[in-house]
Design a protein around this nucleic acid. Structure first.
Length: 219
DNA sequence: ACCCAGGTGGCCC
DNA sequence: GGGCCACATGGG
């Protein structure tokens, strides 16, 4: 199976995911930072708290004190460092783009990525999530699930973010909606089926995989 | 009582 | 360049 076929298979199996969950660009940005190494369930609680406090917009969050943000996003874990990261992002956008997210996200993709990566606390996956789901420019988001899954089934044999991103972008048609869905489907597969520690459930990808239970690849 | 979660940056070599 | 570590809450 090539990547396109894997995408079709996952789409049929899980159905459309319609990511990113979140109503506004700003909510997507905040979610991208809060979900670093954190389950979405915990992130949702933090986001609900921010909504309740009317802090889920650029201006309010920019004005909010560190203590207040820390308290509000606590359920998402790593709350002190994540507060700094949210502040770093906002300070950058307010200083350089007058707090205007549209202006920032309208930059050419390569420049936008470079500037996002210059913000302390925004790494490659976070930057690319913002570019794909908030700025809506075609870039393939890679994460730990992507490496776990595609190494196991033998499509790749490395663990390098850029190498994997380029590989997917070259193998697939450049299509924003498909990139969005494919990454979301990979997360579903990783969360529900292709689990850590050589252990997994019945896989919709009927591919030889050294960790698959026998029903998948009975020689 | 573990292990895991949609990473990142700092530090060391 | 790579390997280890802290960061923290909540669910299975």
């Amino acid at each position: 199976m090539n990547l396109g076929e894997i995408y079709e298979t996952l789409l049929k199996y899980f159905g459309g995911q319609y990511w990113w969950p979140g109503e506004t660009k700003f909510e997507i940005i905040v979610g991208a930072i809060l979900t670093q190494q954190t389950s979405w369930r915990n992130v949702e609680k933090a986001i609900q708290n921010l909504k309740k406090e009317n802090m889920l917009n650029e201006v309010s969050l920019h004005k909010a004190t560190v203590k207040k943000i820390e308290k509000t996003i606590k359920p998402s874990g790593f709350y002190k460092i994540k507060t700094k990261r949210l502040k770093n992002f906002l300070n950058f956008v307010f200083k350089k783009y007058d707090g205007n997210l549209e202006k920032f996200f309208n930059l050419p993709k390569e420049q936008l990525r470079k500037e996002l990566l210059s913000i302390n606390g925004v790494g490659k996956e976070t930057a690319d999530s913002m570019i794909l789901y908030a700025a809506e420019k075609p870039i393939f988001v890679v994460d730990a699930y992507t490496h776990r899954i595609f190494n196991r089934i033998g499509i790749i044999n490395w663990d390098d973010y850029e190498k994997t991103r380029i590989f997917f972008e070259e193998e697939l048609e450049e299509n924003i909606e498909m990139f969005k869905e494919f990454h979301a489907l990979i997360v579903q597969l990783g969360k529900n089926i292709c689990k850590p520690k050589p252990k997994c459930n019945i896989c919709p990808l009927n591919i030889r995989c050294k960790y698959a239970i026998s029903i998948n690849n009975s020689t």
